Simulated assay, not measured.
Amino acid sequence: MITGSIVALVTPMYPNGELDWEALDQLVEFHLAEGTDAIVAVGTSGESATLSVAEHCQVIKRVVAQVRGKIPVIAGTGANSTAEAVVLTQEAKAAGADACLLVTPYYNKPTQEGLYQHFAHIAKAVDIPQLLYNVPGRTAVDMLPETVARLATVTNIIGIKEATGDLARAQSIVDQCPDDFVLLSGDDATAVELILLGGKGNISVTANVAPKQMAELCRLANAGQSEQARALNNQLMSLHQALFLESNPIPVKWALSALGKIQSGIRLPLTELSSEFHEPLKLAMEQVGLVSQSRV
């Protein structure tokens, strides 16, 4: 069910920080038209950390309604409180999400046993397919492959978004987990190599602005067409890198605004892209054939 290019969708906002529902609907339609295989609503790129619980649930419901069952919708429902993550996951199930994506509990720095108990508790509390999400660069906690392998035996924990970019780590997960456990990349630059190792797809920041290219890249990699997949990835590499000139989703929201897809709104403590990075990001966009209709 969950394979290919999965966009980590941004949450559009007006300059005053209010949510822009019309732009959200239009982004969903854009991805449906461009061949994106699935959508993550309210993940890191969707500014989950700055949305209220009510807004979080509203965005999930809106995306599910707009997708109309055409592709899977994965709801970001992780939290640093286990109880809050259960509530968000329950709300996502009620909204009709196909699966949930749960980040490791940030700031708390739980032990590996704490991580196991956290995710096992949520999986047992809510009957919906669940994906783990390991991104130690943002959370200050690293879920080791041995813990992932333990969790892979828990009913309805179906896979992981592994965002370290460490291919040895990815191989270890493939080796230790069941064949039907879904390994997804969370790092655009190394996604092709992870898929070629046995991964199933990529939860992508780059797909926000280059959805057709990322869908093709994942299709080629999943088909084992390594030479073509790597060649396309090389063409996209400058964009992958430019989208992290500052913390995600700062650059990607600026890029979407420059393309006329959304307004410039972003919530504190995140700020708009620093002016020194405008030209490097524009150049990277131009290099992959994205024509700017700049508003900024």
Rank of each mutant, 00 (worst) to 15 (best):
N80L: 14
A149P: 00
E55G: 15
A210K: 06
A221G: 03
V63A: 04
R230N: 10
T147M: 03
I6T: 05
F119N: 13
D175P: 07
F181G: 10
A223T: 02
A120D: 10
Y14V: 14
E227C: 01
W254R: 00
A152I: 01
V63T: 09
A170S: 12
Q58F: 01
F30Y: 02
C218W: 00
R150I: 09
P280R: 01
K93Q: 13
G165K: 00
I157C: 09
L273N: 02
C218A: 09
T206N: 02
C177Q: 04
E146R: 05
P15A: 07
D25E: 08
L281F: 09
G199A: 10
L27N: 14
P110F: 06
A140W: 03
D180Q: 14
L102D: 06
G4I: 06
N134S: 10
E113G: 14
D187R: 07
L194F: 01
V42D: 04
Q228I: 03
V59R: 10
Q90C: 00
L196S: 13
V53K: 02
I2A: 13
M285P: 15
C100D: 01
G201A: 01
V73Y: 07
M285T: 15
A94Y: 06
E279T: 02
D142M: 11
R219S: 11
K282Y: 07
M1Y: 10
K282S: 15
V296W: 14
P72C: 03
S292Q: 12
Q117F: 11
N156I: 03
Q176H: 02
I158T: 10
D37E: 12
G43C: 07
T164N: 06
T44I: 05
K253S: 12
L132Q: 01
S275K: 14
I39H: 09
P72R: 09
T89V: 01
V10K: 05
E113S: 15
H121G: 14
H118Q: 05
P12Y: 12
H278M: 04
A49D: 10
W254M: 07
A242L: 03
F30D: 11
S185M: 03
G4E: 02
V10D: 09
A170Q: 04
S172I: 11
A49R: 04
Q241M: 04
Y106M: 11
I173F: 04
A85Y: 05
A95V: 07
M143Q: 12
Q213C: 06
A65D: 15
V154L: 15
Y107M: 11
G224C: 09
V126N: 11
L167V: 13
A242G: 11
Q112I: 12
Q263N: 03
I6S: 08
G78T: 08
S247C: 06
S48V: 07
Q225Y: 02
V73S: 12
N108W: 06
V103P: 15
D127F: 08
T147C: 08
I2V: 13
I6H: 09
L236W: 12
T111I: 06
G165L: 00
V103C: 14
S275P: 11
I71T: 03
T11K: 05
L273H: 00
